[in-house]
């Protein structure tokens, strides 16, 4: 199943291979300098990219934001004259967290090598200046970390709810509790609250370890906490629903895995969702973990509080529905 999933992800991935190119080396007559012109033509002829020209002096940040550009090559003003002087640079900005990034760098470098050979200097004249983009230094581990936090609160909540309910139902503790004035809602809310605390503690542990070991560049905010809280409510609710279908302790783990594994892989935990096949993206929209992951990234990585708040609301809705349905179908006493 994992093989199929990964195979699917890799074989279908490819939002194309857009390379935005901005040529700032413009002569007084408004035309590009011949050298910059030939560099871009060579890049285009590799067919490796879908080269998209953008006007000189356009603000790159807005391009990154609006067009979701992940690869930008900038030829600076004075490129041709600098080259003639013996030293020039080309700036490449790209998202390191994307799988296509390394091949991009390789191709651009080989094109520049070709150019340097043409100029026939002994010392390479044109060099490539690489710059990472998206909050300056987004590495795969940075992208991955919020996903790990998401997995952590999902597994804590789902497994916690399933095993608690199943264990106490099969070992007779629930039967004893049912003879006391304790009601079903009190029991379930206590259980959910307990899982919530465990989830938050687990998430804090993951964030702390990630920060210390990998130097993750994340900045948890109050919205991060809101996402964690709503996820910490949604997943035990989800677990309660699954627990209803579980007959004994032995099958509890299997049921938990059956729910958490697909969710883990289909909710953008390991790879950005937009790199996934369309069908996966559609399925992901129905999974709470998708919104937890997005919300965590938006709040502590990408600095998008409005988007994170929107994610939190959706997760809270999931939580509400799951807890209501879970409470309704959980059996307590015979007459309930």
């Amino acid at each position: 199943m994992l093989m199929v999933l990964f195979g699917g992800i890799f074989s279908f991935s490819g939002d194309g291979f857009d390379l935005y190119v901005q040529n700032n080396d413009i002569m007084e007559n408004g035309l590009a300098t011949p050298l910059s012109e030939s560099l871009i033509r060579t890049l285009n002829s590799t067919q490796a990219f879908d080269v998209k020209m953008i006007p000189p002096n356009q603000d790159m940040e807005s391009l990154i934001h609006d067009k979701n550009a992940a690869r930008i090559l900038m030829v600076p003003k004075g490129f041709q004259s600098d080259t003639e002087m013996g030293s020039s640079i080309v700036l490449l900005r790209y998202d390191q967290s994307q799988a296509s990034s390394s091949s991009l760098v390789g191709i651009v470098k080989s094109v520049l090598d070709g150019l340097n050979a043409d100029i026939a200097g002994i010392e390479p004249i044109v060099s490539l200046q690489e710059e990472n983009m998206v909050s300056n230094s987004l590495r795969f581990i940075d992208f991955f970390m919020p996903g790990v936090v998401g997995i952590s609160i999902m597994t804590t909540g789902v497994f916690g709810a399933i095993t608690t309910n199943t264990k106490y139902r099969t070992n007779g503790v629930l039967r004893k509790l049912a003879t006391t004035p304790l009601g079903k809602l009190e029991w379930l809310s206590g259980m959910v609250f307990y899982q919530l605390i465990l989830s938050i503690l687990g998430a804090m542990l993951v964030i702390t370890v990630g920060t210390i070991l990998f130097g993750i560049a994340i900045r948890p905010t109050i919205l991060t906490l809101l996402i964690l809280l709503s996820g910490g409510l949604a997943f035990p609710g989800f677990g309660m629903i699954v627990a209803r279908l579980v007959k004994n302790e032995e099958s509890a783990d299997a049921a938990g895995n059956a729910v958490t594994f697909p969710m883990m892989f289909l909710s953008g935990t390991f790879f950005p969702l937009d790199a996934m096949p369309e069908i996966v993206q559609i399925v992901a929209r129905f999974m709470p973990l998708t919104y937890v992951n997005e919300g965590l990234r938006n709040s502590m990585l990408l600095g998008k509080p409005e988007a994170a708040f929107g994610n939190a609301i959706i997760v809270l809705l999931f939580a509400f529905v799951a807890i209501v349905v879970g409470s309704l179908i959980t059996s307590w006493r015979d007459e309930d």
Partner: peptide, 11 residues
């Protein structure tokens, strides 16, 4: 009432 259920168990 007080109850000791069949196959009693607790935490």
């Amino acid at each position: 009432i007080g109850v000791l259920p069949q196959s009693f168990n607790t935490f």
